[in-house]
Nucleic acid binder design. Structure first.
Length: 309
DNA sequence: CCGACGTCCTGCTAGC
DNA sequence: TGCTAGCAGGACGTCG
């Protein structure tokens, strides 16, 4: 499942292959992604040049602009064209999304839902078996940024200690739910949440408001460390994930807890356990990541007075 | 307002 | 061997 490191890898792989190219045609599959592709979106991006491709959280932003027409003498600037001069294509890979560049002669794999023809024998294909992914087009940078800003918190690398501390202490939710909340920190999913919690010695069921400031900062540092480490390994391939060049990730070999139920904790050799938290399977080491007594017994709500004095 | 939970979707696999 | 129930989970809608 593509999380921040996987999406970053896709974007880095794709960058040299798509930047500078023009979208010469858009082909849309029969089945919808999370939201149906709108016909006017094709009009908005057709003929536009890809200036850049970047990542924000788990989202991919393709920046497009009008190519300057050098030879046309009868150039009539149209208002509508000006509004859509710099549209943005925003993609989310969901669970099983793959974004790769192919030659048009390569056979289409099943579940290919969008094809962006790039001319000169290349096309960008969006394939997604489970269709949890999405594609949206916005008329300009401001609209695209607004869309992302209203659902995403800071990138892990830009997460400030103070504000993260405030966010964690302000909630009774289990840490696992906090880390999966994209408005708290953008880009963390089930794998890296579990890995970061193990690295910081915190139980996934610990409730935010029971943490010490020191623990919160340890968690923040663990998130950054595990994300950066994973990017260096091109992310994790569990089953479907591939980078923009079709290469798999290697970080699955570095997992300390995720998907390792029953195996030995790499730190203390205790068997890794799995529990369902926030509707997700959560892997942890019972010894390295103990639940504090007060948290486990009854949700940790009645403890609020003791932190006062 | 906040938190918990159900829904979408397909392919794989554990279990009979 | 063949069948099926259950599981995987990111984002978002709904409910209490």
């Amino acid at each position: 499942m593509p999380e921040l490191p996987e999406v970053e890898t896709v974007v880095r792989d794709l960058r040299p292959l798509v930047v500078g190219r023009r979208i010469t045609a858009v082909r849309v599959g029969a089945k919808n992604l999370r939201r149906p592709w709108q016909a006017e979106w094709s009009e908005l991006i057709l003929g536009k040049r890809i200036d850049a491709i970047r990542r924000r959280g788990k989202w991919i932003v393709v920046e497009l602009s009008v190519i300057r027409e050098t030879k046309s003498s009868d150039e009539r600037p149209r208002a509508r064209l000006r509004l859509a001069a710099n549209p943005r294509l925003i993609l989310h890979l969901g669970m099983t999304g793959q974004l790769t560049v192919h030659q048009p002669t390569e056979p289409l794999k099943d579940h290919t839902h969008l094809i962006f023809e790039l001319g000169r024998g290349h096309e960008l294909r969006f394939r997604d078996v489970r269709r949890f992914g999405s594609a949206d087009v916005f008329v300009n940078e401001a609209e695209a940024n607004a869309y992302l800003a209203e659902r995403l918190g800071p990138e892990p690398m830009e997460l400030e200690a103070k504000s993260f501390q405030a966010a964690v202490l302000a909630t009774i939710r289990p840490l696992k739910a906090v880390l999966l909340d994209q408005s708290v920190v953008a880009g963390v999913g089930n794998i890296y949440a579990d890995e970061a919690l193990h690295r910081s010695g915190l139980h996934p069921e610990r409730r935010g408001n029971t943490l010490q400031p020191k623990e919160i900062d340890r968690l923040r540092e663990a998130i950054v460390a595990v994300i950066e480490h994973a990017i260096e390994h091109r992310g994790s391939t569990i089953r479907d994930y591939i980078g923009g060049s079709g290469l798999k990730g290697e970080f699955q070999n570095e997992f300390r807890v995720y998907g390792r139920t029953g195996e030995a904790c790499p730190v203390c050799e205790t068997a890794i356990e799995v529990v369902r938290v926030a509707g997700r399977s959560s892997h942890y080491c019972g010894k390295c990541q103990p639940v504090s007594r007060e948290t486990k017994s009854s949700g940790g709500v009645h403890r609020s007075t003791s932190s006062r004095d």
